[in-house]
Design a protein around this nucleic acid. Structure first.
Lengths: 225, 225
DNA sequence: ATTCATCAAGTCATCAGATGACTTGATGAA
DNA sequence: TTCATCAAGTCATCTGATGACTTGATGAAT
């Protein structure tokens, strides 16, 4: 049956505070009530308030300044957004990551430095030298190669997102299916690098899309079972 | 010159603890020393230890159980990914969102339902009826339209991410520049809907890219000043 | 010998009070 | 008008205490 809900005061205080911030009770840059006032508002001790505030500071929502007060730094709750993304399906996550792969490859074709090319080719070679598609070592090297492409795009936001998705997808795969996804062959990957080296964004996009297609098809098959 | 480093005990304690965890001093599932012992080890009070532990719990590294102890839940730190995304530049964020716009439009062209089309056209009309590019009302409607395109892709992960980016970008714009971004004209938006309605993914991608280009160019200009 | 209620020690959860460090706006003299 | 000083407000940190919960040990009942 439904497991009994267990919570603690700090988490509940954190939730209340977060809700007020995200809900716009205070605008960005505005000062929120001091610790004593929050302690009254939330009916918890100052220590508990401090723990709640500290968590929200670590999540980028608040900002404390000794002697001055606590201020709203952002009203975007990235940790919650991240949780919701984690709860979406494997196909959705994979497609979102594919969106990054595609645009990153396009940008990489426009911006890659010689050093980027050297790095991509090195990692591509290492990827080829690892044996089968099942082993952890191969997956790591495959991932390292893809990350180097995203890195060549010079876009830090996309790099961070890519890291997040690879982690989330790995978790989801372990949790839901243990079937095999087809590992695209080395040639398809080499085509991506060639297109980027040639500085041809359209060809880079096509190359990524070509290598994605069979994986997505297999994914659909596995999930429809 | 180099600004003086100002830190506080809690952050430094959090850092030390995190380093020990990531460094593998304790394995996953293992119990770490209790609050009193950590207080001694770190030479801070129990309250400070509790704040540090609470932060690491919120980041998924630790797990506290009342009456039992504090345990290592994970030794990899991936939860802060979106926070780091927030700290990247406006151009990077915009490009990342554009990656979502592009792929979402492509998927929408393949999957849109008649209801999706009705909704997109309705929001497009509302967007057109709002006056200038500066007003909040217009921005809201513009955003609503773009979200409807992402929604038509049927991908929940991309919708969540899109929400995150629009909020993050709005904040960043307010924080960094108050210049005007060119609002692409209604016709360019209509072209996106037409391509999706026609079920033509390539044309949908082109339409999105066409409307993105002037905005990105202006962004580069503003940021290079 | 096994089972199970009880208990005690250990641990986190929470509270209360106090002091220190820092910021900020007001005050008043130069 | 400028600038040093000050006082109030706020967060930072420490200390001590009590409560709630977990867990393994104990010992009686079966």
């Amino acid at each position: 049956m439904q497991p009994a809900i267990r919570t603690n005061l700090t988490d509940s205080a954190t939730g209340s505070l977060r809700a007020e911030i995200v809900g716009g009770r205070w605008g960005v840059g505005e000062r929120i009530p001091n610790e004593a006032a929050l302690s009254d508002l939330l009916s918890v001790s100052r220590g508990t308030v401090r723990e709640a505030v500290r968590v929200l500071v670590s999540q980028g929502l608040l900002d404390t300044r000794q002697g001055s007060g606590t201020y709203v730094r952002s009203t975007v709750d990235s940790s919650a957004a991240l949780d919701r993304v984690k709860r979406t399906g494997l196909r959705d996550q994979w497609e979102a990551r594919a969106a990054l792969d595609l645009e990153a490859a396009r940008l990489a074709a426009l911006r890659r430095t010689p050093a980027d090319l050297v790095r991509m080719r090195l990692l591509l070679a290492e990827r080829g030298s690892a044996a089968s598609g099942g082993s952890d070592a191969f997956i790591r090297r495959d991932l390292a190669f893809h990350k180097s492409v995203v890195a060549a795009s010079g876009n830090r936001a996309m790099m961070e997102l890519y890291d997040f998705f690879t982690a989330a997808i790995t978790e989801t795969i372990h949790a839901t299916i243990d079937g095999e996804l087809p590992e695209p062959d080395q040639q398809a990957h080499a085509a991506i690098v060639d297109a980027i080296a040639a500085g041809d964004p359209d060809r880079a996009v096509s190359a990524v899309r070509a290598f994605m297609a069979p994986v997505l098809a297999q994914l659909e098959r596995l999930l429809s079972q």
